[in-house]
Structure formats: structure tokens, C-alpha cells
């Protein structure tokens, strides 16, 4: 099921004209003004939210969780048993990560995460989702054709490996614990964290050796 009858995805192409972009900017400015003028929210709070999600909350957090799990078997066990509590041990928690579950990739099992109904994503550990994660192409097809979608990312999963797709339909958020790279034993936790990518923690990539 990995070939495409559908044309190349028309939905992701940059398609807004300058006029359309100006119209979007005007609509957002009008909405912001209406809410701030009436004291529903302040501009300073909006600035803070942008700053937090652009600088403090991102996939580097999840990478530290993964590297710590690779280096500390007891933490790995706690992460797989109660991910919310284990992740909080490292200081990560909050909106869209209130109820975390970690799923482990092994030589026999490959996990991949989606939200078919909207674009639910574990913000405290991965930050905000990339455009492809929110696209109709990914949300629609990874459940019916996970091997084909992973091939779109250049990842071939052998036929004898089981694929588990996790559809985030409730307020549970999923973090993939990838397999450590082949040379993990020769690296410290910080060096390992630098190898862990966002895509590996969604399950559309593996962690390459450093």
C-alpha cells in the first residue's frame, strides 16, 4: 500500500499570496486587540507564551529524557511504568503533557505516534509539532499504511518487525523511546541526548550513531 495514486500533496505548498498573508495578519491583529482591550489576556502574557514555546519547550527536553533512560535502567523502568512521573523527575511537565505514556522501540517492535482527529502532541517534551505531523497526508495515512508513511521518511521497517501505531485520541500523550545507537556504550548522556531527534521520538526515524 505504499504507492500513491494521489498527486503530490497540494496542501503543504506555500500558497498564500502577499495579499492573503496581509489579510491573515490583519485578522490576527484584530482578534488580539479585541481580547487585550477587554482585559481577557495581556500582550505581555502572549509574548511570554511565544517565548516559552520558541525557546524553553522543545525536543531537547525529550532528548534528555531518552538519553537518561538509555543510561539509567531504573529510570527507563520508571519511564515505561509511569512516564508522567518519570518525565517530571527531569523537570518537564505541563500543558499537553499532563498524562504521558512512553513506548519503547526494540529490535522486534517499532512504535509511531499520530493524532488522526486533530494534531495532539506531547508539548512539554517535544515542543510544538512540525507541519507534516499536522498535515492531512500524515494524519490520514499512517494508521492504514504505516510502512508506506515510514518509507516516505526513508525508514524501511523489516517485515518481521511489528509496527504499533498510537492514535492520540484522548488527553494521553505518547513519547517513543527509540533504540539507542550502536555505539551508545562509548558515549555519555549529554552526547547521546545530542543525537536524539524529534522524528525519532515520534517514531518516523531511528537514532543514528554519533
Amino acid at each position: 500500500m505504499s504507492t500513491h495514486d494521489a498527486p503530490p500533496n497540494p496542501y503543504l505548498a506555500p500558497r498564500r499570496t502577499a495579499d492573503e498573508s496581509r489579510e491573515l495578519e490583519a485578522r490576527v491583529a484584530k482578534l488580539e486587540r479585541a481580547l487585550t482591550d477587554r482585559g481577557i489576556v495581556t500582550r505581555e502574557t502572549l509574548d511570554r507564551v511565544v517565548d516559552l514555546y520558541e525557546h524553553d519547550i522543545g525536543p531537547m527536553n525529550g532528548a534528555r529524557v531518552v538519553a537518561h533512560a538509555w543510561c539509567d535502567p531504573e529510570f527507563r523502568a520508571r519511564l515505561l511504568d509511569d512516564a508522567t512521573a518519570a518525565i517530571a523527575e527531569l523537570g518537564y511537565s505541563g500543558l499537553q503533557g499532563e498524562h504521558m505514556v512512553a513506548v519503547e522501540n526494540t529490535s522486534d517492535v517499532h512504535n509511531v505516534v499520530v493524532c488522526t482527529l486533530c494534531s495532539c502532541y506531547p508539548w512539554p517534551v517535544l515542543g510544538l509539532p512540525p507541519t507534516w505531523y499536522k498535515s492531512p497526508a500524515y494524519r490520514s495515512r499512517v494508521v492504514i499504511d504505516p510502512r508506506g508513511v515510514l518509507a516516505d521518511f526513508g525508514l524501511t521497517i523489516p517485515d518481521d518487525v511489528e509496527i504499533r501505531v498510537w492514535d492520540s485520541s484522548a488527553e494521553i500523550r505518547y513519547l517513543v523511546l527509540p533504540e539507542p545507537p550502536a555505539n551508545a556504550d562509548s558515549m555519555d548522556e549529554e552526547a547521546l541526548a545530542a543525537l536524539v531527534t524529534r522524528d525519532a521520538m515520534i517514531g518516523v526515524a531511528k537514532v543514528a550513531a554519533g
Binding site: 500513491h4 495514486d5 503530490p8 500533496n9 507534516w132 492531512p136 497526508a137 490520514s140 499512517v142 521518511f153
Partner: peptide, 8 residues
Amino acid sequence: TCFGPVEA
């Protein structure tokens, strides 16, 4: 399956 390949 009508939306084409996933493009990152």
C-alpha cells in the same frame, strides 16, 4: 489515502 506522500 488521497493526500499524497508526507513531505517534511
